[in-house]
Every structure is written in structure tokens, then in C-alpha cells.
Design a protein around this nucleic acid. Structure first.
Lengths: 183, 183
DNA sequence: GAAGCCATGTAATTGGTTACATGATTAG
DNA sequence: CTAATCATGTAACCAATTACATGGCTTC
């Protein structure tokens, strides 16, 4: 119930959320992120472990030592307070920043400085990049389906969104390619 | 011709690219970014002015003092070396990181922890956010069209992409809403 | 017995933002 | 005359990443 000295940040809620999907180690959280939300949120070990510590001090998670053999191991699970805090954050009506940093689009924006041929090459690179991304998203689909066994399919929903917007990029690339080669 | 002591970063190429669209002040670069690429790349004054200085030392841009009244003013323009460096960067075959950070999708990912009603509210918020983004993109369309007068329409292309992928998100939202309210 | 994975953590650095400081000009 | 916009810069701070350090267990 104790509140954090500093207000909780988004990365804190990400680790809280990952633990809400099932108890696990810091390492497991990292792996879960890599097979789920990594396409719209990343987090590094150097954030996870300190965050876990803060969350425990705040009573949001509880840990127990569960060494496997001689290997140090700490398993975290959600507390009632943690569940409540996560819920409150999820329903919080607050602007949700959508931040994109894409050098591909930046280059494309300046592509009028290129010859038609070079510009077409660049466009192709952007298109293929999205194709590769879709392939990577399809590859993690099984993991997403597994995480939401029975109790909902929001992990699959976010996966669909990732696929949908890369498909949208591909379609615009193809349309533009047709338009420019036509004349 | 002198090369930068440190290798050029993406923000450096962004200011170089903005100058390639026409000479201007640091302040003008900031404004151009705000009415063009800000949806997939941001840059702050604290980056622009030092970057401009570095670019000039490297011979990529040249500045002349052009005070307007008693107001200090420095106008930068592209040099031949700058044009070459920009071109080389644009055709560079190198991975182009696409980085998205979206707390909206993060929340949606964890939305199985919510009641169906709460989850629907969250989904609506995500949808409306993309609708607002499309409106903002349509608002800067005139500025984008102006920038690429005659010599190409890549600025409009990147604008189309922004619109397309927010449309894709909206479509997935609507489809999911239908699916979940149906049963 | 080597490579790779499980696991936990810290230190140093980076890349970037916010806030500040300053001041002239123009539009209402 | 006041607010907004044009314009240039710096200092302090912060979030986050990379790299490092350590070590046991598992699989080939």
C-alpha cells in the first residue's frame, strides 16, 4: 500500500503488467517483452531489475528466492496492491503518447533530392522493411496466443495492429510505385 | 570537405535535409520540422543550433548574417559538399531503424485485466487518438504540398503513409469492436 | 569442453529534453 | 500596449542504452 517515493513511470507499469501475466524472474520479463510488445515498447535489463526493486518496496510485487540448483533466482509475483495499481493505470484517462522515430520515412521525405531510380530503390527498401516486420510479427503470434489463453485476446489485437499498419505502409509504397512508373 | 570529428548523426542529416529544401535560420528549421516530419521525427532547438555549428565547421553548410532590423539572424544554406553528403546518406544501404513507443498499444496489450466495458472504453480512446492524428496530418497537407512544388512529391508520400497507418489502426479497432460486441 | 542460455546486477555513457536567459519585431 | 512570433543560444537534468562483470546450468 505504501506509495512510491517517485511516481511510477511507464516502464514500471510495463514490468508490473508483465508480472500480472504470471509470476516470473526479471530475466523472464525481458524475454516476454521480446516476444510480445517489443514492436511498440522496449525495455532493457538495466531498467527491469531496479524497477522490480522499487515495485517491491512499494508493495506492488512480492519476491521469493527460488534458486535453480546453485543458480541465483528470484521469482516475482503480483500483490493485490499491484493488481489495483495496474488497473488504475489502464483506465486512467490521460493522453497516450504515440512516438514514432523512423529514419526510413525521414529519408523518403527528402527523396526528391534523389534521381527517380535512386528514389525507387529507397522506396523498395522501406517496403521490404515492413514486409520483414510483418514476418517477425507473424512469428511471435503463437507466443501471443499462448499468453492470452481463454481470458481474452488483447495481445492478439495489438499484434493485428502491428501487422495492419505495416501492411498499410506496403500498400502506399506499391501505389506510389505504380503512380511514378506509369507516366 | 573537412569531415566531422565525430560521425554525423541522424539529427544532423535532418537539419542538413531541411536546409536542402531552402536556405533559412535555425528557427525556420524548427518550424519546418513541426509542419512536416514531426510525426516520425522530432528535434529540439537545443539540438539544431549546435548541429548547425558542427555542419558549418565541416563545410556542409555556410552561414551569413542577415539581421532583420536590430534582431540577430543567421541564414544557412547548403554547400556542394553538404548536398553530396545528404545524397550519400539517402542512398546508403543500411538498416533503417523503425522505433515506435506507444503507451496506447501497451495498455491495450494488458487490457485483458480490465472488464469488457473498460476494455471497450480504452479501445475507443486508441481509435479516437488515431482519428485526431489523421486530422492533424490533413492540416499540414498544404505545407507539405508547398514544400515539394514541382520537383517531386515525396513529402506528400510520407504524409500519405502517416494517414494510411492511422487509418489501419482505426480499422482494426472497429473490427475488434464488432467482434467483441457481437457475441 | 565449448557454446549458448538462464540469471542478476552495476557503471559509464549517451542522446535528448526542459527550462532558462535574452531580446527585437509585428499584429491586434 | 500587450501578446505572439521571430530568433539564438546555454545549462541542467533525465531516461535509457551499452557495456561490463559474474557465474551456474544445459546441450551438443
Amino acid at each position: 500500500m505504501t506509495s512510491l517515493p517517485a511516481p511510477m513511470t511507464t516502464p514500471d507499469f510495463v514490468v508490473l503488467g508483465m508480472i500480472s501475466l504470471g509470476a516470473g524472474t526479471g530475466y523472464a520479463i525481458k524475454k516476454r517483452v521480446a516476444t510480445s510488445i517489443r514492436f511498440f515498447w522496449t525495455i532493457s535489463e538495466a531498467q527491469i531489475y531496479p524497477s522490480l526493486e522499487r515495485l517491491e518496496r512499494a508493495g506492488m510485487v512480492a519476491s521469493r528466492l527460488a534458486p535453480s540448483g546453485g543458480r541465483r533466482r528470484r521469482v516475482f509475483e503480483l500483490t493485490a496492491a499491484g493488481r489495483g495499481a495496474l488497473h488504475d493505470w489502464l483506465v486512467l484517462s490521460e493522453p497516450m503518447p504515440f512516438e514514432l522515430r523512423d529514419v526510413g520515412l525521414v529519408r523518403l521525405f527528402f527523396a526528391d533530392a534523389l534521381s527517380p531510380d535512386e528514389a525507387r530503390t529507397l522506396l523498395g527498401a522501406v517496403r521490404r522493411r515492413s514486409e520483414a516486420r510483418i514476418a517477425a510479427l507473424l512469428a511471435i503470434r503463437p507466443a501471443a496466443a499462448e499468453v492470452s489463453e481463454g481470458k481474452g485476446d488483447h495481445p492478439l489485437l495489438t499484434l493485428r495492429m502491428g501487422i495492419a499498419f505495416h501492411r498499410a505502409i506496403i500498400e502506399v509504397c506499391e501505389a506510389f510505385e505504380r503512380e511514378t512508373t506509369l507516366n
